[in-house]
């Protein structure tokens, strides 16, 4: 399947994300001749262990997430980032998790927005919001290149496209920029050939980075 990079918006120190920035980013996609092609949505849930004694909570992973992707609605992906583990399941695994009453959702987020076609590239720009809320927590972008499915082989063209994108966006003097951090897929047992599991790992990864960024911003403010 086509490879994609998933990037998140890093606000400049002292600033936060807002809908104005999202709207500027979307306009930028259109300004480079991106053709709007409808909506896209991903959801991510953080799970926490249900424990009988609170003191034992640390015995269980705290970075356990479940991811559902619009492109594969029948699938569900479970990622424990600390253990470099990604498991692909059917969406019915959520029922199993609910029935076994050992983990529950701590917080669920949705990533949603518009999709744009630019030749062989597809851009998806969206906001990160907690479920059942409009309170924006971040901005994400999926950058997909349709002709290539090898992570290595696509690296150069993706890098060049990202540079062009950053350049177009820089004209708008927004208080932040998109960051691309590559997870080490080999550590997850994933090969160079791109799969939907790679996408799940990237989502878990940017989520961790967004949390780290907001925590360090909070620490600075305090």
């Amino acid at each position: 399947m086509p490879i994609k990079w998933i990037l998140h918006w890093q606000p400049n120190p002292g600033t936060t994300v807002n809908t104005q920035i999202l709207s500027e980013v979307s306009q930028c996609a259109e300004s480079i001749n991106g053709v709007k092609e409808g909506r896209w949505k991903t959801t991510l849930s953080f799970y926490k262990a249900m424990v009988r004694e609170q003191a034992t909570a640390n015995d269980f992973p705290r970075d356990f997430v479940g991811i559902s992707l619009a492109e594969q609605p029948s699938k569900y992906f479970l990622v424990i980032r600390g253990q470099r583990l990604v498991v692909e399941a059917e969406s019915s695994i959520q029922i199993i998790m609910e029935k076994s009453q050992s983990y529950k959702t701590r917080v669920a987020l949705s990533f949603e927005g518009n999709q744009y076609q630019l030749g062989d590239f597809q851009l998806r720009v969206g906001k990160v919001v907690p479920m059942n809320s409009e309170n924006m927590r971040g901005i994400v972008m999926e950058m997909e290149y349709l002709p290539i499915s090898s992570w290595e082989k696509s690296h150069q063209i993706m890098g060049e496209f990202f540079d062009l994108w950053q350049e177009a966006l820089s004209k708008r003097s927004l208080p932040g920029h998109f960051v691309h951090n590559e997870p080490n897929f080999a550590e997850y047992g994933l090969s160079d050939e791109y799969t939907v599991q790679h996408t799940a790992v990237q989502y878990a990864n940017i989520m961790a980075q967004m949390i780290a960024t907001s925590q360090s911003a909070q620490a600075t403010r305090n």
Binding site: Y76, E88, A89, E90, S92, I95
Partner: peptide, 12 residues
């Protein structure tokens, strides 16, 4: 309730 899972599910 059943779900197919990838082969590394035991590790999970």
């Amino acid at each position: 309730a059943e779900s197919k899972v990838s082969k590394n599910a035991l590790r999970l």
